[in-house]
């Protein structure tokens, strides 16, 4: 019976639902929102990439060795694990801003997969290049050393011969 009359009474009360898109809903100050990145502070240790559970952070690298930070808000689960993993205060931080919707034009999933693979590729290429350069350098050093040694030997023999 009580419910019957409270149902009629409810007619004279305000609805409790909020008109969400037109008026804001409750959001705490430390809402887990988008991950922010401060490039100037980053020390490029890639720990965030290793820690990230869904793989929403990846670093690509160009041939000069400069790294670029990539972040996908649609893959991110906003757990903040990257921020905890970051050894440099302030390089990564979690904002209270909710992520905007992904649009079809962004091609956010397939595009990200491609980008992810490319980023890994670019790092491999850089590593290979570095290795090749190192090998080249080592070879060059070796050659130089050998040449030097040869030259020294030459000089030595010369000296010897001159001495002799």
């Amino acid at each position: 019976m009580n419910t019957f009359f409270s149902a009629i009474g409810n007619l004279f009360k305000e609805p409790v639902t909020t008109k969400y898109p037109f008026e804001p809903t409750y959001k705490p100050d430390d809402y887990r929102g988008l991950i922010g990145f401060e490039e100037s502070l980053c020390i490029w240790c890639r720990r965030c990439e290793l820690a990230c559970p869904p793989g929403a952070i990846v670093f690509s690298q160009d041939m000069e060795g400069k790294q670029t930070y990539h972040y996908n808000r649609a893959v991110c689960i906003y757990c903040g694990e990257c921020v905890r993993a970051c050894p440099k205060e302030g390089a990564l931080f979690q904002t209270a801003e909710p992520a905007p919707c992904a649009l079809k034009e962004e091609n956010i999933n397939n595009g990200w997969n491609q980008l992810f693979d490319e980023a890994l590729d670019s790092r491999e290429k850089f590593a290979a290049e570095k290795k090749r350069k190192a090998a080249e350098k080592a070879a060059a050093d070796k050659a130089a050393a050998a040449a030097k040694k040869a030259a020294e030997e030459q000089a030595g023999t010369n000296n010897e011969t001159s001495a002799g």
């Binding site: 009629i8 409810n10 007619l11 609805p15 409790v16 639902t17 008109k19």
Partner: peptide, 11 residues
């Protein structure tokens, strides 16, 4: 609408 108001919705 009346039903929604009785359930405190907008309707």
């Amino acid at each position: 609408i009346v039903k929604a108001r009785m359930q405190r919705r907008i309707g």
